[in-house]
């Protein structure tokens, strides 16, 4: 199980990019941390999620 934004998902083995797409996030609007470290944008396709990973996808909305 992988915890994404506080909820558990059965996505071990999938790439971060796949999860971002499957969860309908716009990759241009997000910043992502995995296990306490920021994931560089260029590595979203290469990072494979593992059992026990904790991920947070911060999706920005406009206004300021």
């Amino acid at each position: 199980m992988v915890k994404i934004n506080g909820e558990c998902f059965d996505v071990a083995g999938k790439s971060l990019a796949e999860c971002i797409a499957a969860m309908n996030y716009d990759p241009r609007l997000v910043a992502v941390e995995r296990n306490g470290d920021i994931v560089p944008k260029s590595q979203y396709s290469e990072v494979i999620l593992m059992d026990g990973d904790g991920v947070e996808i911060v999706s920005f909305v406009g206004g300021g």
Binding site: L29, A31, I38, P40, V58, F60, G62
Partner: peptide, 17 residues
Amino acid sequence: AFDKAEAKAMLANTVLE
């Protein structure tokens, strides 16, 4: 302190990376 979501994400990723 930007207003556009894309600019916010760009700055966040650039600073944190």
